[in-house]
Write a protein that binds this DNA or RNA. Structure first.
Lengths: 212, 212, 212, 212
DNA sequence: TATGAATGAGGCTTCATTCAT
DNA sequence: CATGAATGAAGCCTCATTCAT
């Protein structure tokens, strides 16, 4: 139970932190705000995360790790099943949209923070984004094997895809205000998958593949 | 000459500021860093911009104002010429890419800052982004009149277009590291216009229109 | 004991603050001076008092609250005893002189600060001085009931009395230099009570009342 | 005319300064506020007064010099006329009240500033207040010669008198709020002279002297 | 495990002043 | 005479952190 309590306190701090990072950004948020929002003492934050930077790292990991795990999982099962009638690439995309919608605060904050260039961010970029790229290339290769042909160059295709995955969360305010699409609402997943699908149909040639 | 000198000092401060904001973000940058980079006294910043926030505002305006002016100018001339063989929408897009490439630091910093939700940002969003949206809708309507038909819904089309305009600058590090496309280099304009064109061809039906 | 330690640090800061406020005035005193005089860190001041203004407020309260409490206490006991042979009004005056002599630094600083017109001062004035006036009027009415008759109008009487209570502390330097009466010395209480008594005898008609 | 213009600018600055000193005190007032209130450039203040402290000194002199001159003038004429039916002491008091009422802002600010103990204030005190004391003693001696007898000790008498002369201006807010006597209004002179007269009658024995 | 006291560093701003014009 | 640019110093405050408990 002691352990549980620790877990609880710790994750409450993280939730409060992400909430504030999401709104104001990492540097504009003080650990005093975080701790008071979480209802714990200021020292507790340093105690659990060894400083503010440690908290940031854990928060970023708490987003990127499951993000990559999910992508990996979809890729693995896709290889296992090897269903020729489905674009597992699109399936991965839909999953990631759903995951991000469920953690949209994490998503916005994480993608924004990756925009800065501190040493820590560069290290994370090197580690996670490369893995992500690797998996996408794999999935793309698989789709192509299945007979899907893309009208544009594979590089451009992947750039467009990956940026479409982060964009609505990163620029959520703009998106929401101008187009009335809100990544914080549940049905966003369905709506945005629709947009993705239309884009996909636009840039690929028709084939026997169905989009889940 | 006195005025000139003032202008010089002031714009040197702005240049230094944008450089640092671009790299580390607004809140992580201290005005001491800015002033020492600009080679002026700390107090000079507050003297010219009435505080750090004032500096931020002027920097944002220094990006969004010409950005919108450019878009407006292209829209105006497009209406004047009314050349049925050209997509003035794409021409606008190319111009904005070029403008942003020439001011890529401004661009990254501005789009990132728009990601935060402070009061000031919200006011700017209301003012500038709405105007931008309005012009795009106008241009789109014109293109459609000319006989271009888009395969996806107009809303989705504009969302994709506008996010493709900011994305490479906002996520420049990721883009560069993974795909070796560098928005800070001159030839990026050409390369990225290429990507845009392919996307455009993918989501529109063939027509007599040529893309400049 | 932790609480004790806190109290100690906090009150050491207050003592240092009043010492400096007394000498140079609130605005001319920096919290650096205060903290260094108190032997604590600069941040400690803001930690305990939430800023310089908070320190000022607590210092003023630390004077006006006991001041009013004392007046109230004398008034209460005066009503209880209802001794027809004593002017409880004068007794209250003597008590307040003694209290102020014991805290003459507080007194000078407080009365001087009340001289400024900031919002905070106005609020304090509204709160404390009105209560004080109310009690004086009560005491005066009681004295009159006992048969004391004042030669001058009650209003003028109270104005003279109250200003004689604060004057020697507020203008202590002048008083001391010119008349060699020093509010910081213990025997001032006796001396000044003498002055008060003479004044009182001058402006009231003789009666059976003795002045304590 | 050039000289006149200088005079005008200079005195406009002084008027603005006293206005602000009166309200917020010397240290809480910045020369930027003063200069902007006076409608001149910041540098002008340092130009005319050789710094902020110089401005303070001139403002204080601008009060104490005419104050003392007035007192001296009344004393001189009193000696000349030597009218046995008038208390020239009271006449001096009435004159000083009138003078202070006409310059009530100066008065409050000056008496308050004398409350601080900086080196400059001490020097001024030494110079002016001693002269004042000297004249009062002279006038008192004259009155006594005329047959007026005071019930209280001469020292106490002078202390009471001088403090009654500054008190209403120094503690004007309190006085005004509690007793509705306003030193900034013209008729205050008459009202307060009345209070003074009653006090005087209380502490002196009846005589043939009339109070103007 | 969790806290409150206390701190040193640094941040932003304001101030009074100077200097060239 | 009067000004605007620019500055160094200082002011207040907030921050992240540590330490004893």
């Amino acid at each position: 139970m002691a352990i549980l309590q620790q877990r609880e306190t710790k994750s409450e701090v993280m939730i409060a932190a992400v909430d504030l990072f999401y709104t104001k950004g990492y540097h504009a948020t003080s650990i005093r705000e975080i701790s008071s929002k979480a209802g714990v003492n200021v020292a507790t934050v340093s105690y659990y995360f060894a400083g503010k930077q440690g908290l940031l790292e854990e928060c970023l990991l708490a987003f990127f790790e499951p993000y990559l795990d999910l992508l990996q999982k979809v890729a693995d099962s896709s290889i296992l099943k090897n269903d020729p009638t489905r674009s597992h690439m699109m399936e991965a995309a839909f999953s990631l949209i759903e995951f991000q919608q469920q953690n949209h605060r994490f998503a916005r904050f994480a993608w924004r923070e990756v925009t800065m260039d501190s040493q820590m961010v560069r290290e994370m970029t090197s580690c996670y984004l490369r893995k992500e790229q690797y998996i996408w290339k794999l999935l793309l290769a698989q789709d192509i094997e299945k007979g899907i042909s893309i009208k544009i160059s594979p590089s451009f295709f992947l750039i467009q895809l990956t940026s479409m995955l982060s964009m609505p969360f990163l620029q959520s305010q703009t998106i929401q205000e101008l187009w009335n699409i809100n990544p914080s609402e549940k049905h966003f997943t369905r709506e945005y998958s629709c947009i993705l699908r239309e884009w996909y149909l636009g840039v690929t040639c028709e084939s026997a593949i169905t989009l889940g």
